Amino acid sequence: MAIADNSSFSMSTMSDALQHIPFSKGISGYIPPPGFAPRATVANSRLNSLFSVMTSGEGLAQFKDIISKSDRKELHMMVSLLTSDSDYFTKIVRNIYGSRRVQKLLGISDDVDAFFYAALLRRFFHIITDKYASYVAMRAMLVFDQKKKYVMYEHLLHHALDIACNQYGCIALNEIITDADDPFYRNLLLEVVARNALYLSNDPSGNFVVQHVLKLYDLRCTHNVAVSLRGHCVDLAFKKYGSYIVEKLLDTEMSMDVVVVELLECEGDRLMRLARNEFGSFVVVKALRVTNEMNRVDMFRGLVEKLMPFLHLLRRSHGSNIANILESTIN
């Protein structure tokens, strides 16, 4: 299906398109297969006009005002056409301007939301993992009624790991977890992340989700993440993003125990390499600092004793800050 060029788009054409797209009885937004031109001409013309309305870079600020002046029937018919074909709808919401305009249409009325709800569910994963379309799904989960939200949450839970491991999906998932107004589904999402923390922590995108849930300082979730990562903290600490996760675990006393015990149990040579590592050195510094600040003398002294034999090596590496802490205990 050809999409009209919107380079000559203006506010007047947007207003005309929204308020005067003819919706004659018997003509829908159905997109016929290629080669079926006779009946497709009128329908395609309307689809092209609407595509220009939704994706033009002009008149974004005035779009909401124009929508407010449209009556219920006009909005109902326009949204019906907008969501009549999954490919067409997805192409619009994947456009930066299309995404913004659809977001403004969400929540206007239950019958309008019903069209968007069905369209979103048909392509849920593809929409939630797109740079711009994902904001439509996030907005929907804020404004939809409770019944629709619950179904959206079920879809989210079903695809949670794949969404978390997607470049844009991880951002959407983090936003939804933060804004979730239903404690039941929020806890289910946190449980999925915590239960799969090791897998996600080793993923280029998934690690951001683990970092995010740890920043929420939900004690139960933090505990579950720590349990999932027990025995793997040192391995993670050698990696850039993995070290961020281990550092976050050191922020609460319960999860701090998991990390420090593992540091104390690892071989001295391996602990030395971690302390000299570009990323691991930050973990060791923080472990020394928090055990001292929390007055966990046994753990602090244990770390100092394991690291002291390597003091001379730490001075000439990323572990120089660790060396400073060790030297402060000598006097």
Rank of each mutant, 00 (worst) to 15 (best):
L161F: 01
S134E: 02
A172I: 07
N196F: 01
M152F: 02
Y132P: 05
R186A: 10
G169Y: 00
E154P: 09
N187H: 15
Y132C: 11
Y168Q: 13
M141L: 14
S201Q: 01
M141H: 14
M141T: 12
V136E: 03
E191N: 13
Y153I: 08
E191A: 13
V210T: 09
R139V: 04
C170W: 03
R139C: 11
L156V: 04
R123W: 00
A194Y: 04
L173G: 03
V193D: 13
Y185T: 09
R195T: 14
A137F: 13
A172V: 06
N166R: 03
L200Q: 02
H126T: 07
L142Y: 13
C165L: 06
H155A: 06
V193N: 06
D203N: 14
V210P: 05
Q146C: 11
V209D: 02
A197N: 13
L173H: 09
S134W: 01
P204S: 09
V192L: 12
Y199T: 13
L161I: 12
A197G: 08
H158P: 10
H159V: 06
A180N: 07
N207M: 05
E154K: 08
A194N: 09
Y199G: 01
D181R: 12
L161H: 02
S201R: 03
K147F: 10
H126D: 15
V192D: 07
I127Y: 00
L190C: 07
A133K: 02
H159Q: 10
I163P: 03
I127L: 09
A160G: 02
I177G: 11
V143Y: 00
L173A: 03
S134R: 04
V192T: 15
N166W: 00
A160F: 08
K148Y: 14
R195L: 12
A194I: 13
A197E: 10
R186L: 14
K147P: 06
K148R: 15
D145T: 08
C170E: 02
I171G: 00
M141I: 12
D203W: 04
A164M: 06
C170Y: 01
N202C: 11
L157D: 02
I176R: 08
L200Y: 03
D162M: 11
C170L: 03
I176D: 07
E191C: 06
N207C: 11
K147D: 12
G206P: 00
D203Q: 06
A160E: 00
